[in-house]
Design a protein around this nucleic acid. Sequence first.
DNA 1: AAAAGGCATTGATCTGAATCAATGGTTTTT
DNA 2: AAAAACCATTGATTCAGATCAATGCCTTTT
Lengths: 194, 194
Amino acid sequence: MYELFFQSFADKKIILTLEEKEMIRKYLTPKKLRKKQYLLQEGDICKTIAFVEKGALREYSIDENGAEHIIQFAIEGWTISDLFSFLTGEAATYNIDALEDSELVLISKSANEELLQRFHKYETYTRLQITGAYLAMQKRLNSINTLTIEERYLDFTTIYPNITQRVPQHMIASYMGLQPETLSRIRRKISVSK
Amino acid sequence: MYELFFQSFADKKIILTLEEKEMIRKYLTPKKLRKKQYLLQEGDICKTIAFVEKGALREYSIDENGAEHIIQFAIEGWTISDLFSFLTGEAATYNIDALEDSELVLISKSANEELLQRFHKYETYTRLQITGAYLAMQKRLNSINTLTIEERYLDFTTIYPNITQRVPQHMIASYMGLQPETLSRIRRKISVSK
DNA sequence: AAAAGGCATTGATCTGAATCAATGGTTTTT
DNA sequence: AAAAACCATTGATTCAGATCAATGCCTTTT
């Protein structure tokens, strides 16, 4: 259990002994989520960071017109949370729900704090994790300003080839800040030119 | 010297003794930059993280049409770098230059690595720093998808009231992903409605 | 098995931002 | 002090993506 979670330490060159894994394991809680089930709703306080062992989730905000805007997908190996709410204890501005039946590893606020204090490698893990997330988001922001929509979609399909198969197209449009009709037309354009 | 730099530790509730400050100071290099001078050019390898003690800088990419796209401003108390290039040693994709005569504190790659290894509080500082940057960027990305341009500009002026006075308007347009003409019209619209 | 709901696609039209162009003011250079 | 470069603003026009609308397919519900 928690294979992928521990794998994500190894991916960052953080080597854990069996004892260390045992120790960390005590701070973790497994959780299964059915498709369409919420992990977090806007207004609630985000109590956990979730690591995805299996399945797929989305994080999104809802604007004043009731439209959803997806800011992140999370599949196997990804971490998802309303980090601002988690860290500050303020009401969440994002919703998180499952796009497929999913298996998560949850880290509570107290678990996170204790792990950070007591276990140096966990702080390093956290630092590398957030650094990677920062760089990915910076790249995404830059793509929005410098690339055409076609290029951005092709980028998306190469970076997340799996998600394209698993997630409805209108959600990819939402992630890209487009209307579903627009993404449909972009895809047609691309398929014609090939 | 380095007042603001050490202040940014205190802001994060990281208390440093005089001895610790002395120790850190040995890893830092001061640098002055004239207005319009480059700190980093696309294609070079980013050798340092820069903390701004005084002045203002911008970080931007240049697209295939030669247009500039500003992804970040940095004024007093901010940190600026092409983090991807710094961490991987690959060629930088961003340019950084000074918008005013500026005074920086530079942290080299080796200094960063040694500080991370030898001084736990520095790793914590780094972690909190990148976490704040991540949250700010996430908020910015969400604003792009959920707010009108007017709202985004008003947000910008409240979050960075100083930058508005110090930076040419067309650069703020670039940061927002707009044409200068469009931002000018938005501003007129806002001033009329008040 | 039938009905309902969700989804991708396509067409027609509208609209907000980009583009092109000109002007006057301000700052920088010489 | 004059010339040059830079910049914000305004007007006219264009265009890409949004919106409105309809259709057929597929999946889920009953």
